[in-house]
Simulated scan of single mutants.
Amino acid sequence: MSGRNSLKIVVCGGGTGGHYYPLIAVISALKKKIELKVLYYTSKGRLDDRYAERDIENVKKMPLEVKGLKRPVYSPKNIMVIFDHLLTTDKVKRNMAEFSPNLVFSTGGYISFPVVKAASKIGLPVFLHEQNSIPGIANKRLARYAKKVFISFEKSRDYFKNIENGKVIYTGNPVRKVMKTRKEIFDSLGIDQNRKLIIICGGSQGSDFLNRIMIEIYDGIKDDKYFFYHITGNAEIKTKNYSFVRYRKFDPQLNEYIAVADGVVARGGATTIAELAHYGTPGVIIPWSEATENHQYYNGLMLQEMGLGYVILENAVTSGGLLETINRISTSRRHLLNIEKDPAETIAGHLLQEE
């Protein structure tokens, strides 16, 4: 896109942090290079809808009410879902044409169906990013409309074999920049830097299982060696007051804490895996077994293969065993990976090359 001094871009992605934060990282990278105008199709009431206007300056937000396909995909209930998608596609097509963007960038999720299809109908170049090791249904189905498909794991290429050579590009998963130091984070928590900071996070939706097992662990801790920053999400939890635990339902800047932590216990969401790898923070991954195609397990295996942690299946977790593993990762040396190119910068570069 040589010679341009501004770019109009349409973006969308599912309403979870796994879709949202990589998108924010790419937008931030673009803003450093060019004047940007953004039309964001958000999932009404979800995380992206709540935070887009805070995180993106002068964004034009368009909330959509879109439902995902029921499992199994051949369920009769999907007839109405598909019909709603068609109506939404027509609405998006008209709105998108009025905005007159240069391109569309999507990070997947079911909201991307009407957005990407509308873009293809009016001839806009489409770029997709897949965060997980096993691509989601949306990106697999919509890849044929894309000019380029960016992947976070080299192994994901196998799932796009029907896409012509050169369109699938390994970039990694974009991660937000860290603005605070370890001292600043520890000072904000009111704790000494000699203590071990452990992050507990069940994803942007929270995890009943992680909340319960951690309460068992907290009940047995007798010293102040650890300090736990525990993100409970929307899941129900009967919290108890411990001097070494700080609870939060949600923290939009959790990456700042992960970057300086001594260890993380989490589900296997793609953004969590990317942040642990990028910051070199060791983790214990307890994948959610009901994730589509068990992708959280395979995401976690990627981290384990990097030497950055352990994967433990939920049915194998005990409070004693988990505490022992937390102790192991918190005393291990940080393993900073040699990341040659920043994923967000790489993707931004490809988008700016679009004529």
Rank of each mutant, 00 (worst) to 15 (best):
D223Y: 03
W288L: 15
K167R: 11
E290W: 15
K31H: 11
T239S: 03
L323M: 12
V317R: 15
G263S: 05
S28H: 13
L322E: 10
E130I: 01
V73P: 11
L189H: 03
K222L: 09
V149K: 04
F83R: 15
L142E: 06
Q205L: 14
E355Y: 13
K155W: 10
M80G: 14
S332H: 09
S289L: 15
T171Q: 03
D224L: 08
K148A: 00
R176H: 02
Y21N: 05
L189R: 07
T318R: 10
E324R: 13
L336N: 10
M214N: 09
T181E: 06
A52G: 05
D55E: 14
K161A: 10
S319I: 07
A277K: 12
D187F: 09
A274Y: 03
K196I: 07
Y247C: 07
L352S: 09
L7S: 04
F150C: 02
K8D: 08
S6I: 00
G203C: 02
K341C: 13
G280Q: 07
E154Q: 15
L189G: 07
I9P: 00
Q296G: 02
N78R: 09
S43V: 10
R176S: 02
K32A: 12
S43K: 11
K70H: 13
I237G: 11
R46A: 08
N95V: 12
G190D: 04
A119W: 00
L23Y: 01
D342Q: 03
R94S: 14
I286Q: 09
D224A: 07
L124R: 02
G172I: 05
L189Q: 06
G166R: 05
E216A: 14
E35R: 14
E256D: 06
R333F: 13
G307I: 03
Y229L: 10
K147P: 03
I347Q: 06
D158N: 12
V265Y: 08
K67D: 00
K225L: 09
E340I: 14
P22H: 04
V178M: 02
E275Y: 05
D84Y: 11
E256N: 04
N241W: 05
K148I: 04
I200Q: 09
P287W: 06
A266C: 15
E35L: 14
G136S: 06
G283M: 02
I199G: 00
K167T: 03
L336W: 12
L30D: 07
N211K: 04
